[in-house]
Every structure is written in structure tokens, then in C-alpha cells.
Amino acid sequence: MGVLPELGLVRSDDLGRVLASVDAEHVPYAGGTELVPAMGLGLRRPAAVVDLKRVEALGRIAVDADAGAVEIGAAVTHRRIAEHPGVRRHLPVLARAAGRVGNARVRSTGTIGGNLCFAEPRSDLACVLIALQATSEVRSGRGARTLAVDELVIGAFETSLSADEILVSVTVPFEPAGMSYWKLQSYERPTLGVAVVVTEDRWEITVGAAVERPVRTVLAAGDSAGLDDFAAGLDIGADLCGPAEYKRSVLREHLRTVLETAP
């Protein structure tokens, strides 16, 4: 990475001012673990970054036992998610996944919001959150809206956010029984991530990393043909981690192991 380009900073602890400052050239910024390298590599060139870290509301984790959900502020770091007792209790798969993102430094500075909004396909959190059917709260000067994380992350490095919107928080329903997450990670970033929720009559499967954005499907338990179709139908890309047929094969084998041969 070379030196960073000329850059401005907007910093406020007031969400309103932050919202008023964000546009296509003034981009939201928290941990910087994705944005700073991207700027250094010349992939992003905003005029200024708008620092979200001082807005208190974005840094909260709140467990709502009545609603059966945990609300996580967009500027909460991976490390806090991994270590938070409420997350560990109610969302153990997410806590573990957050505890294995990148490395200890990335986890200390990188945030859940940055991770989702950068929409790097080779990401664990988006896959796990989509599997958990999490929702996101998005705000701009124009108001607020709530949408599924599944609708937020819409492609490789692509979200449905407008330039003036920021992700405020993610609300994650308590983890259902029978959930697990497995990833193949031979390189710096995962090659393949697979979240499954197994109930008596359903197989819920979410696949990430190998696809442009996580893909979720629900099958009747025991529907092996459906599993075959699902794996065969995924638009899996080739990259330095391997060709599509490799990833598809590992995916199919993994699904066979966790679903079809499960006791």
C-alpha cells in the first residue's frame, strides 16, 4: 500500500450532524479496516471520511429479552461482539464468527457496520447475519428505514444504501436451536462459509464467501435432491482460492456431512 490520498475528516458526536455530512464524497468511516487499505490501494478515493465512532448510539449492544433479539450498533467492533456476554449467550455462532474475523487487530478496530457496508463477499458476518435473518436500521437526513440484512447486502462490494444513508444498527433475533457455521479458510479471507439451521422438518442453508453475496434457502429436511439443486444452482465464482467446481464440491460435501449424515 502506498501513501493515502489527500483526505478530509468530519467528526461529530451528534448523529444529526453526521447524517447531514454523509454523501457520495463524504463516506461513513469507523474502524477503517476496509476503507483505509482500499484508499491506500487506490480503490477508493473519497473527499472525506465521516467518523461515526463518536456517536454514542452507534456503539451500543442491547439485549432485548422480550423481543428475543440483540441490537448491535454499527460501530461496535468485532472484538466487542465476540466478548459481549449477551451476544455469547444468545448468539453464540455470531460471537464465534466475530471472534475469528481477520486477525486480532482487525477485530479490535473493525466494526460490524463497516463489514456489512463494505460488502466484501469473502466475509463471515454477512453470511451469519443473513442466516439469522437479522434486520438493519438505516438512517439518513430524510428519515429512517428498516430492512433485512439480506436486502442490505445486495452484491459484491454493493449495498442498497443511498449515498446519504448510514447503517445505524443491526437487530439479530436470538439464535435458533440447531444452528452452526463452518468455513473453509485456507487464505487470508474465507473461501467458503456455510451457515445451517437444522430443525426437525427444515434445513435452512446460507452460503457465503464463494458467492457475490450470501444466498439463503430453506428446504424440507431430507430433501437431498433439493440440496443438489441448490448447490448446483449457486453462482459460484473462480478466484485465486480455486475454481467454482472446487468450491461447489466442498460445499456439497460439507452439506452432506452436516445434514444428510447427521445423527
Partner: peptide, 11 residues
């Protein structure tokens, strides 16, 4: 011998 190459050898 990356994982993908070894997988291809196995296949």
C-alpha cells in the same frame, strides 16, 4: 499444492 490443486489431484 494449493487446496484447490490437491482437490483436483484427488479427483
Amino acid at each position: 499444492l494449493t487446496p484447490a490443486r490437491v482437490w483436483a489431484l484427488l479427483r
